[in-house]
């Protein structure tokens, strides 16, 4: 962020407030930094005593849970590729072409998707997947997520592309590029920060989701981590907190790593705007 305001007014106060809010956001998560290393099950925040890595050993010994992380990755990456590419193409077309009715379409789809995200729509989706013979496959989960996330992805990306001046592509086309070339060679690099937002957003959504895989998958070998985490519940149905915390930590690392990588490499922006 290049613009700096002269700190004539309470810059310290601003910093303190920002830090305070940040700390408040961190509080509910602190437990997850301690509990996985604790030999004893505790809901309270305590220094691990005895300190142990055994919880991780146990978790990695659970082949179902390890396989589930891999399954989550397949489903999330597959879904992200589909959402990212389809949404980019569609949002670009909606922003740059003059197809009739394009103005309202993202809003209407957004509203449709709000109905479909409710649980009543799980039935038609189940019937479609079942009729297509896709039950219990990764593809079923990938396609369903792609369809469900696309309206919002298109909505966000379209906003992003609308905020990029058309002059980029115009000058390319003046230089003799075709509209499709202008898209791939000129527009795509400029849109990239927006695509990155969609990638992270859809990855996070698929990675954490329970209901859709639960309804569309059957065999243990296909279930994602959001389902497998329930294998760290005792026979009585209570969570085994030490193992659950350890698995949660492992399960959370990929999304954190993805965010850090993306914000380091591309930045994380919603609009093209003036500063390209």
């Amino acid at each position: 962020m290049k613009f700096t305001l002269p700190a004539f007014f309470g810059r310290m106060a601003f910093s303190a407030l920002a830090a305070l809010i940040g700390a408040a956001f961190a509080l509910p998560l602190l437990w997850f930094l301690f509990a996985p290393f604790n030999g004893r099950a505790e809901l309270g925040l305590t220094i691990p005593d005895p300190f142990t890595l055994n919880n991780f050993v146990t978790v990695f010994g659970n082949s179902f849970a390890v396989q589930a992380l891999w399954n989550s990755l397949i489903q999330a990456v597959g879904g992200v590729i589909l959402v990212g590419s389809a949404a980019t193409l569609a949002a670009y077309a909606l922003s740059r072409s003059s197809i009739p009715g394009k103005g309202a379409v993202t809003y209407i789809l957004l509203l449709f998707s709000s109905v479909v995200s409710g649980s009543a729509a799980m039935v038609p989706i189940f019937l479609i997947i079942s009729a297509a013979g896709l039950m219990d496959t990764h593809l079923a989960v990938i396609l369903t997520f792609a369809g469900g996330l696309l309206p919002t992805a298109m909505f966000i990306l379209r906003d992003f592309i609308d905020s990029i001046p058309k002059s980029y592509e115009e000058s390319a086309m003046v230089a003799g590029a075709s509209p499709v070339q202008a898209f791939f060679d000129v527009a795509l690099p400029v849109i990239r920060p927006g695509i990155v937002v969609i990638v992270v957003w859809s990855f996070v959504n698929i990675w954490g989701s329970f209901l859709i895989p639960f309804i569309l998958l059957r065999s243990d070998s296909n279930m994602p981590a959001a389902v497998a985490i329930y294998s760290f519940y005792s026979e009585a149905g209570t969570p085994v907190v030490t193992l659950l915390a350890a698995y949660s930590l492992i399960y959370s690392l990929p999304v954190i790593a993805l965010y850090l990588f993306v914000s380091w490499k591309f930045g994380f922006r919603f609009f093209g705007g003036i500063k390209a």
Binding site: L127, S130, M135, I215, R218, Y230
Partner: peptide, 23 residues
């Protein structure tokens, strides 16, 4: 054997959906 680890009601849902489509 498919070991189902969810709730009773969730198994009921799965079975009802599956049986309704011949799966």
């Amino acid at each position: 054997l498919n070991q189902f680890g969810g709730e009773d009601a969730q198994l009921t849902q799965q079975l009802a959906l599956d049986f309704s489509t011949g799966a």
